[in-house]
Amino acid sequence: MYRLNIYIGTGAVLLALVGLFLWIPQDTGTGLIVRVRRQVSIGDALAPTIAFTLLAIGGALLLIERRKHSSTDVMLAPFLHTGALVAVIILGLLLMRHAGPGFLLVAEWFGATDTEYRLLRETFPWKYIGYFLGGVAIIGGMASLSAGRLQARTVLIAGVVTIGLVALVDVPFDDLLLPPNGDY
């Protein structure tokens, strides 16, 4: 933990320096204070400046805080495992976003009428394709990854649960959109 605190503290201070001296000056419309209508007002840069200063103070405190040397090492393996989980989620979200329009492209190759996903986004089955495939990928993928093996049963459960969520969220609520249909 002792080492870890040094890493976090240093990271926080460095991030704060970047924020204070690069990001805020380059990327705010008004400075710390502005004169508008013959009156001095607080500018857009003040609040983030204070926030980054707090970050720097927090980091500095962490560096000077005396901590007991404990032997809890941060292991790499759990990080890799969580990294893999995040990768599965990213894959699931990408599938969610692109599966519907992708299927439409394929359908058009095979001679379906030329149209746009945008116009079909509220019709069955188009509106469920992305959500269903993405949902199955996320649930099935995470569960399989955690269990260390891919089983047909897991995928089946994932499918049933996703259909259950569709029934729970989409069917009773008229104005509620499932991903990715609100992006159009």
Partner: peptide
């Protein structure tokens, strides 16, 4: 710890 708390607030 106060340091971590401040970092959390600042973020």
């Amino acid at each position: 710890s106060p340091g971590k708390g401040l970092i959390s607030v600042a973020l």
